[in-house]
Amino acid sequence: MSSVSPTSSFAIDVPKALLARARAGEPAAFEQLYRWFERPVFTLALRLTGQREEAQDILQDTMLKLFDRLGEFRGDSPFWGWLRQIAVNESLMLLRRRGRFLSDDGIDESELPATDLMLPPRAADAAILGQALARLPGATRSVIWLYHAEGYTHEEIANATGKSVSFSKSQLARGTRKLRGLLHLDTEVMAHG
């Protein structure tokens, strides 16, 4: 994974000595890695799937894969990026298995420019934004999260999802529009709450 988002919650520098201990099979080192990345993995899984129980399963599966494949990590990129890719793959795999990452061949290129969204402070409130995200379809929410929060490029999203670059761009454009609408509605609800 070439993209590096400095704002990603995964961006934790892991000492080489800790990785060496984990590679050697030391349980305490594995536990340390788990503690550091438990919440980033769970949060990513929750953002992509929208379901806490599914995110819990993905957390466990991701960590198991980490333990199994740690020896394959070459160290030529940040460890957290490598782990994040495992978590992304696990999340997308679950969405596909459950039919929530449906193919979308009807791409309307006229929708593509609408990818930037500037939020008023009230709409950027964590609760309101979280609620709006949760109401998006799985594929759309995944693309929005990977692009905006994790800093993936469209090419990287296409690789991860097994779709085309156009699919990623289309989902981003449509998702941004839907999000704008949802945030407006939620703002109205919160204003009366």
């Binding site: 988002s5 704002t7 995110a55 819990q56 939020l119 950027a124 979280g130 692009y147 929060a149």
Partner: peptide, 18 residues
């Protein structure tokens, strides 16, 4: 008030705990 880019707002969401 200054508006906040979506990417920044998403990245600022708090981490969830299992």
């Amino acid at each position: 008030l200054p508006r906040i880019p979506l990417a920044q707002a998403l990245a600022a969401l708090p981490l969830e705990t299992p």
